[in-house]
Computed example of a mutant assay.
Amino acid sequence: MIKKFEKYVLITDMDGTLIDSKGNISEENINAIRYFVEQGGKFTIATGRMVESARRYVKDLPVELPVILYNGTKIFDFIKEETINEYFLEDEIKELIKEIKKNQSSLGIEIYAEENVYIFNSCRFTERFSKKGYEVFYKIPNELWERKWTKILILGEEEEMDVLEEHFEDCYGKTNLIRSGENYLEIIPKGTSKGHAMEHLCKSFNLDISKVIAVGDNMNDLELLLKASYGFCVENGNKKLMNQVKYKTKCNDNHAIAHVIEWLEKNIVKV
């Protein structure tokens, strides 16, 4: 007997999409995802988070496929506890952030390397880790500059981020810069994105890209939503993103993923 979601793949962003504004995944979303998987679908996550930050949510979900982390820079299999694919920042970016710190000292700068977070420059947004119990390093060891970096996160007030995003290339040169939130700008390795990682995942695990459903809320999700056959933006999402994708769904506080699965069942699935 063919199950109704056989060969379909659901990929969702976490913050602002799967996770509500209180930091939880609703029972409605969890139950809907379990139903999707029980009916033959495959489920995974595409997030800007690192391994341990994603793990505390992944453990409660039926995630059978590897998870896309760091906005596409890393693909990690939580079942096998192994990295499937990973890219690293170009060495010249390491010098660039010294310039940013020198010229715009009010901005927070975080370095992500070897699953650790190093605070290169503090601001009020870099203090969020202390509230969540994550270990971060405020002392930058000299050897960090010789290690492989996964990404850099620049943090500041929304207006600061707007200006920096608009003029970044003029001031600092061309990089793979993405806006992952009102207060977040990320630099990730060239050629990487959630969409690129999704294509890698489909090719590696023989998944039909024409049956991929993706859900997100911000501009770091754009490529993922455009490359998926059914790309949904939640109604609390970035307006630029909303204007560029075909499908819309409920906000993250109104069980967005459950609504997407319900829509899929009513409009697409033929059994």
Results as ranks from 00 to 15, higher is better:
26 S>F: 08
27 E>Q: 13
29 N>M: 04
29 N>Y: 04
30 I>R: 14
30 I>E: 13
30 I>K: 15
32 A>E: 05
32 A>C: 10
33 I>T: 03
33 I>Q: 03
35 Y>N: 07
37 V>A: 05
37 V>K: 06
38 E>Y: 10
39 Q>D: 07
40 G>S: 09
41 G>D: 01
43 F>N: 00
43 F>I: 05
43 F>P: 00
44 T>V: 01
45 I>F: 07
46 A>S: 12
48 G>R: 04
48 G>P: 01
48 G>V: 06
49 R>P: 01
50 M>D: 10
50 M>Q: 13
52 E>N: 15
53 S>Q: 14
55 R>E: 14
56 R>Y: 12
57 Y>T: 05
57 Y>V: 03
57 Y>H: 13
58 V>F: 09
58 V>W: 09
60 D>T: 10
60 D>A: 11
61 L>N: 07
62 P>Q: 06
62 P>K: 03
62 P>L: 08
62 P>F: 10
64 E>I: 03
65 L>R: 08
65 L>K: 10
67 V>E: 03
67 V>N: 04
68 I>T: 02
69 L>V: 03
70 Y>H: 11
71 N>Y: 01
71 N>W: 00
71 N>P: 00
72 G>R: 07
72 G>D: 02
75 I>F: 01
75 I>A: 01
76 F>C: 04
77 D>V: 04
77 D>P: 07
78 F>Y: 15
78 F>E: 11
79 I>G: 11
79 I>D: 14
79 I>L: 14
83 T>V: 14
83 T>L: 02
83 T>M: 06
84 I>P: 01
84 I>V: 15
85 N>R: 11
88 F>E: 04
91 D>P: 15
91 D>V: 14
92 E>F: 13
93 I>L: 11
94 K>E: 06
95 E>C: 00
96 L>C: 11
97 I>E: 02
98 K>M: 08
98 K>D: 13
98 K>F: 10
99 E>K: 15
99 E>C: 02
100 I>W: 00
100 I>Q: 01
102 K>Y: 11
102 K>N: 13
103 N>I: 00
103 N>P: 01
105 S>D: 13
106 S>C: 08
106 S>P: 00
107 L>Y: 08
108 G>A: 12
108 G>T: 04
110 E>C: 12
110 E>L: 14
110 E>I: 14
111 I>Y: 08
112 Y>N: 12
114 E>T: 12
114 E>Y: 12
116 N>I: 04
117 V>Q: 03
117 V>L: 09
117 V>N: 10
118 Y>M: 09
118 Y>Q: 04
119 I>Y: 06
120 F>R: 03
120 F>N: 04
122 S>F: 01
122 S>A: 12
122 S>V: 00
123 C>M: 04
123 C>D: 14
124 R>V: 08
126 T>G: 04
126 T>W: 03
126 T>Q: 06
